[in-house]
Design a protein around this nucleic acid. Structure first.
Length: 283
DNA sequence: CATTACCTGCAA
DNA sequence: TTGCAGGTAATG
């Protein structure tokens, strides 16, 4: 499911609903691999009785600030979802973590594929998580110049670079394809080959793709829901992603699908063509 | 850099 | 039955 827009929307819709409540019980933890740190029994002990002070997002992690000074960090990976449920709701077999709140409501962490993860972090753990990730693409600090700096000297193909969370945080397979479509850049172009204009276009493409998704409530391919259980509609506005065989909205050429960096990759072979050697030399 | 693993469900 | 899926970590 979740890339930056979906994680942001999931965090906000969850945070708004549970801020100020107290977690009175940790229920239904039936998939221990979900808890990465600390050990599951300690995780439950440290979480029980804690009040929710606030929330945030870093990269694709949802962060829940607790009154103990610790942070509950949740990662939805491919198929995870977080929803706030009424007192009497019953978790289905794919729900592997339930937080019972002091007003009786429940937070369900549902994840059919069991890739989702939970961590309980102290200040040092949170700092380490932060340090492991790169720039936030919607932050003020992420300027065109900053992106140029990040690309400089990297011969890696641009798409896998966009997917590297330690370089830029929060972009996944959907928005990498969409950002490159906006910028008219072929996914296999070496990052350091991009011209100044192309870097500026990519910067704009990244932000445009992410902001459009936020506006549309995120993209729901299958599992994504915000914490009210609502689907996003941005999947109805894709330009390249998941549009193999359909016309490019810009030039009407047929969108093709290939594999780049082991990921399905969609792009327009006409307006995202690799420039000829002569063109490159001119830049 | 490529491959495999982690999991399940669903479409081809 | 096979292959593929929004992610990431661990291997050659």
């Amino acid at each position: 499911m979740p890339e930056l827009p979906e994680v942001q929307l999931a965090a906000d819709s969850l945070g708004v609903q549970i801020a100020g409540t107290r977690i009175v019980r940790v229920e239904r933890l039936d998939w221990y691999r979900m808890v990465e740190t600390p050990a599951p029994d300690t995780f439950i002990t440290l979480l029980t009785g804690r009040q929710v002070r606030g929330w945030g997002r870093r990269a694709k992690w949802i962060l829940i600030d607790l009154d103990s000074g610790w942070t509950l960090a949740l990662h939805l990976r491919m198929s995870g979802s977080l929803t706030v449920q009424p007192v009497d709701a019953l978790p289905d077999p794919h729900t592997h973590l339930v937080l019972r709140l002091d007003d009786g409501r429940q937070v369900f962490f549902r994840d059919p594929r069991k890739f989702g993860r939970a961590r309980l972090l102290d200040a040092d753990g949170l700092a380490a998580l932060d340090a492991a990730h790169g720039d936030e693409p919607l932050s003020d600090a992420f300027t065109v110049e900053r992106l140029a700096e990040l690309l400089r000297g990297r011969k890696r193909a641009i798409k896998p670079l966009l997917l590297d969370q330690s370089v830029i945080a929060g972009i996944g397979n959907i928005y990498a394809d969409e950002a490159l479509w906006h910028a008219r850049i072929h996914p296999l172009r070496p990052a350091s080959d991009l011209s100044t204009d192309e870097v500026a276009a990519l910067h704009d493409g990244i932000r445009t793709a992410l902001r459009q998704a936020l506006t549309n409530g995120g993209s729901t391919l299958r599992d994504y829901r915000n914490s009210y259980g609502a689907r996003g509609t941005n999947q109805d506005h894709f330009n390249a992603y998941d549009r193999e065989g359909q016309p490019c909205p810009r030039c009407s050429a047929t969108i093709i699908k290939t594999v780049v960096a082991q990921r399905g990759t969609h792009y327009c072979p006409a307006c995202q063509a690799i420039p000829s050697a002569a063109t490159i030399r001119r830049e």
